[in-house]
């Protein structure tokens, strides 16, 4: 019996950069042409479908710049920031390190959508998984944009601003501390992201090329999640009558639960959620307003979809439970003293 030697692998011919550039620009031109042609079409969709599309696209378009900013910050951290700089900035002791991470939003105010890719970048550079929660959960609340807009909306009335900041800080550090005791923190991550974290940090190739590679990789994770989160958030908007929730405003317990439910379904950006909830302040007790402002930036439909790119469903369920209980306790406490 004669054995045939395997044929040598043929080198894969990659199209030239010039040809790829033509293809890329052709795709952009085709998309633009389709968009222009369909933009003026007189299509009479049913109200619910039309509103579902408007809601879904609204969430995507509103989130897009923040997601892109987060991806850009993430690739800067991965490509241009040196390990020595990270270890110099972050304290080695766990508690101070988590405190510093929970205040990092002050210098990187990228909204909750952008925080996910940024946190992924931090973990890929060796920041512990549990510590990343301190950043992820606190940064949407403790950042200058959110602080200014919350102050513009409420001033110091009913202590809403102070409770929001202190509550966000405490919840983030509580969750980070809880998970710092986890014996196998890698099990909190999706298999794929855990595998990425295990890989050695690559310094090969040009920085621009590596940065574009990270851009491509992160958008492949973030955009499908954003689309799905936006679709679910949009579907809830057309399916759940909002006045059902708002009828519960003056009950000391139900008002808090109703505003927490609203925070989860509304998926509004943390930088402006104070303006959104301001009109409800006259019909809802302050505990409900505080619970909305604490829970929304951490746990909402869109945010959960984005976090799902990185964490297992079990982890997200646990975090949602802990955060919701903490927000409920704080909201009830505010109603008790107000």
């Amino acid at each position: 019996m004669t054995r045939t030697a395997p044929a040598p692998a043929r080198p894969v011919r990659r199209p030239s950069r010039g040809r790829l550039a033509v293809v890329a620009l052709g795709i952009v031109a085709a998309l633009l042409a389709v968009r222009i042609v369909t933009g003026g079409a007189d299509v009479d969709l049913p109200d619910l479908l039309s509103d579902l599309i408007t809601f879904t696209l609204s969430v995507i378009i509103e989130s897009l710049p923040f997601v892109l900013l987060g991806v850009l910050l993430s690739l800067v951290v991965q490509v241009w920031v040196k390990d020595a700089w990270i270890s110099r900035v972050l304290p080695s002791a766990p508690v101070p390190r988590r405190i510093v991470l929970s205040l990092l939003g002050v210098v990187f105010p990228v909204c909750e959508c952008g925080n996910v890719p940024f946190a992924r970048g931090l973990m890929l550079r060796g920041v512990p998984v549990s510590d990343s929660f301190a950043f992820l959960l606190a940064a949407p609340i403790i950042n200058p944009v959110t602080i200014i807009t919350t102050h513009q909306a409420f001033g110091f009335d009913d202590g809403i601003l102070v409770v929001r900041l202190v509550g966000g800080f405490l919840i983030a550090n509580l969750v980070a501390w809880l998970y710092s005791r986890h014996p196998e923190p890698e099990r909190l991550l999706t298999d794929r992201f855990a595998a990425e974290c295990r890989m050695p940090h690559s310094e090969s190739g040009g920085r621009a090329g590596r940065a574009l590679g990270i851009f491509q990789h992160e958008t492949a994770s973030m955009l499908p999640a954003l689309f799905l989160g936006a679709l679910v958030a949009g579907a809830i908007q057309v399916a759940v009558p909002r006045d059902v929730l708002l009828a519960l405003g003056t009950h000391p317990v139900l008002s808090v639960l109703a505003m927490m439910a609203l925070a989860i379904v509304i998926s509004v950006c943390s930088s402006v959620d104070a303006f959104f909830v301001l009109p409800f302040a006259s019909s809802f007790l302050p505990g409900g307003i505080v619970a909305f402002l604490l829970l929304g930036p951490i746990v909402d439909v869109k945010m959960l979809a984005l976090l799902r790119t990185t964490f297992t469903p079990r982890t997200l369920a646990q975090i949602s439970g802990v955060v919701a209980l903490a927000c409920l306790a704080i909201g009830l406490g505010v109603n008790l003293v107000s």
Partner: peptide, 12 residues
């Protein structure tokens, strides 16, 4: 556009 032209494979 730059990533499509310059990045090979999935970027990783």
């Amino acid at each position: 556009v730059a990533a499509l032209v310059l990045v090979r494979g999935d970027g990783h």
